[in-house]
Design a protein around this nucleic acid. Structure first.
Lengths: 211, 211
DNA sequence: CACCAAATTTGGAGTCACTTAAAGATTTCA
DNA sequence: TGAAATCTTTAAGTGACTCCAAATTTGGTG
């Protein structure tokens, strides 16, 4: 099953468009670059761009598939004896220690994060990705526990796990946007994350009682 | 401080546009009605519509302010001795018992919910409303606990509370969309909600261990 | 090599949300 | 009443995205 000339060219063209688009977006901001400009820079027609990418946002957040599947995969591949939360907790800290980008907390995502922050369209798309991530994790949990089709528990657990991951990611992003050094944020984040996962595992029932 | 002719006319025009738009949207679907049609039906120019409503989505999800503030208000006005979760729990069941619409679980929101479900633009806007609701609750919790500016806890708690409310609302919507009777869904939902809030208060640490 | 069929690319025309600027029209108030 | 402030409309874009039919390119076959 060789890859013919046709397939290779398609892949190359798609990649070229995506790369050139990302370059322009990072340089000038997502909303300040038109699809027509991307097309011109990539030396194709506008219609060809839309042939490969359904929307302009897809040009920027291309490989969102991996991000959407992340938590579901971590749970699917968790170790013997590990609960869902324990698996996510472990993977999160592994990524933190390795400086991996998969939870959005590495160095060098600065400009990328800034471009997302300043564009309502990209923020909206980011929320969609998060929603899909939550759905996938919920389905995985339902599978793994042979849950009843209308058992809410997988959805509740998924939503809460995603909520914690989102809060931690957001915290990193906010402080990075404020100009703090990524490495020192990650150092702080370790303690914050410990408390966050503890809260997740043990519940928030005692929080904020009115005197 | 009387309301002058100008103010009254403005209020009336805005209301007329919103009412006529909602009628058209419910009848034919959000994406099948153009702003130009709304304008013509309301006997104003397109620019007047955009003068009152910043986007087409605002025509549909006008009074989202109340929805965004709901949980924050419930916590602000919680009773003596109540924790944040207890307050939300109580308010949720009050709404459920009263058949109130504020958590999206009354009769008669059928068509409205369907229109949201079938429109990507409206779903996107609904996610934005949920995100704002989460932010407001987080800020409220931070205020109420005099939390450190970079204490993550208010955000974590807010995200988890919102996650549970969202899951419950979603469950109602899914079953309503499948044609079930709202009253009987609400009956089931009572048990589901009890378990959901228990889980929220006590934690999900033991969920889904791998054998 | 030549040729056909399928897949890609392109150009062109159009829709729709939304913006901007300037010219009316209406309301307020001195 | 007349001028100032405020609304509304008209007109002319911009930009994402769609639809369609005409070119072009590629893969396989005789």
């Amino acid at each position: 099953m060789e890859e013919g000339l046709r397939e290779r060219k398609k892949r190359e063209t798609r990649q070229r468009i995506a790369d050139i688009a990302m370059g322009l977006f990072l340089q000038r901001g997502f909303d300040n670059v038109t699809v027509a400009e991307v097309a011109r820079a990539a030396d194709v027609s506008v219609n060809t761009v839309f042939n490969y990418f359904r929307t302009k946002e897809d040009l920027f957040l291309d490989r969102s598939e991996e991000s959407e599947d992340l938590l579901a995969r971590v749970v699917r591949e968790r170790r013997a004896g590990e609960t869902a939360v324990q698996a996510v907790r472990r993977d999160f800290f592994e990524a933190l220690d390795a400086g991996d980008w998969r939870y959005g907390m590495s160095d060098g995502l600065d400009l990328f994060a800034q471009r997302v922050r300043e564009s309502p369209a990209l923020q909206s798309r980011a929320r969609l990705i998060e929603a899909n991530r939550e759905s996938r994790l919920a389905r995985t949990l339902a599978d793994e526990t042979d849950a009843d089709p209308d058992d809410l528990t997988p959805w509740l657990v998924s939503a809460q796990i995603c909520a914690v991951v989102r809060a931690l990611t957001r915290h990193f992003a906010v402080r990075q946007a404020a100009g703090e050094d990524p490495a020192s944020i990650r150092a702080d984040l370790r303690e914050h994350a410990e408390r966050a996962f503890d809260l997740l595992e043990r519940g928030i029932g005692g929080y904020c009682p009115r005197p």
